[in-house]
Amino acid sequence: MAVAEIKTTTPPTGLAEFWFYFSRNKGAVIGLVIFVIILLLAILAPLVTPHSPSIQNRDVLLLPPALAAGGQWTYFLGTDAVGRDILSRLIYGARFSLFIGLVVVTLSVISGVLVGLVAGYFRGRTDTIIMRVMDIILAFPSLLLALVLVAVLGPGLVNAMIAISLVNLPHFVRLTRAAVMSERTKDYVIASRVAGAGTLRLMFLTILPNCLAPLIVQATLAFSAAILDAAALGFLGMGAQPPTPEWGTMLAEAREFIQRAWWVVTFPGLAILITVIAINLMGDGLRDALDPKLKRS
């Protein structure tokens, strides 16, 4: 096969090619950098925080940030109404947010992929029933549905995560089902069948690995959505309970001080904003790199 093998350039490896397309999207690279910083801060929280997130210093209630008039450098972003360091609480809060994102995405991806795989592979009545249930879930405003679920299960971080996973589920089911349906009639699947592969083998080993690219993109977007939903539930008092330094809960606690101490609401809000934007930018880059249809040239 000399004709085919001599090429002017050798094809790049998968990872190099991925990075080539990913790095073309400047926003995605910025998002990745910010995300890695947040991740490192969250992991190293006990080492990098100047104060404990829960110790209250009664001498410095509602201290402004260091750069504002009357601020102190030891409390760089100021303190809240009970004298806790906001910077330290935000850094510890990143742990919760990332943890929530991770758990929610894991839960909804695993269950969504399973359900979608079954629907897309077997089609027929199974498919119809599953998809109608998903349509019903989609018909509710997502936050409202999460609220109802938390109200039923009882407030708390774990229940909030379960509720958000369920709300996220239909997106993954639909995506998986569509990908499975387009893959399962392809020649390589039929070839596996002719070789004697059984249903489970075809579903999980043959078809599923080829459906992952769009799921990875969707997972990053769901990650940021989960952080946002968890913050919203926390703000409404249905998520993490005080004194947990969760960003949404921090916002809720600071509600009454909006007029006199702008920093207690601004910084948790900014933390949520920056994290969500960073992850969404990253997801955009992933889509560029993983979706062959969008590949330029």
């Binding site: 002017t8 350039t9 050798t10 790049p12 190099a16 090619e17 080539f20 040239s297």
Partner: peptide
């Protein structure tokens, strides 16, 4: 010539 991930391709 095309610009590709593997460099210019004639």
């Amino acid at each position: 010539e095309f610009q590709t991930a593997a460099g210019p391709f004639r």
